[in-house]
Amino acid sequence: MQSHVQNSTASDGEQTYFDMFSLPRKLTIDTAALERGFYKLSRQLHPDLYARKSAAEQAWSLRQSSLLNDAYRTLKDPVARTAYLLKLEGMRMEDENTENRDPRAKQNRVPADLLEEVFELNMQLEEMRANLKMGEDDPALRGDLERAQVQFKAMLTSLDEDLRRAWAAWDAAMDASDDAAKNEQKDAMVAMLDRRSYLRNLLREVDGVLTWQGAVGEKANI
């Protein structure tokens, strides 16, 4: 018997990923400088440099370098960076910073404006799956799904543009120490990230059905 609990805040009073690279909590960052910082710190912390040191030093290096790698991976990716920052700011997201975490959670909350489209899409997906299991392929249905795919991809693109504007707005609010504006952006970004992960999961399902090769034989890719 086991239940899986969502992470709460990343760190309480500990060094944040931003601190590690001496960066302000802003969302537009100089990725070239980030990479330079990552390489520089790697040259100080990587376990290769402690291979002949004491067990305690090796354990320290392992901890520090894994933390560094996790930090770099998170900050390098703008979406993961945003999710991390929001978490630091005490916000809660439905889907944390990684994609495809728990497939059960996928269907839960449909963004209100998408209810109708998602309902129809789910019907089509079910029908298509049933057809495919029987070895049939309905070209009209496939066409519908392909159109839905294009439509949801376009939504994702425009959402990413909104997100970029939100980053700029957040950074400006940071510079101005404008807490009201910051709170406004935080709420907006949480909603955007939730919507984004919802759209991506949906698209993944559509892609899966459209590229379905048959039930037999597909083995784990390991």
Partner: peptide, 12 residues
């Protein structure tokens, strides 16, 4: 990139 880590929380 390795070393890499993840912390997860579980309950009963």
């Amino acid at each position: 990139t390795i070393p890499a880590s993840a912390t997860e929380h579980f309950t009963t």
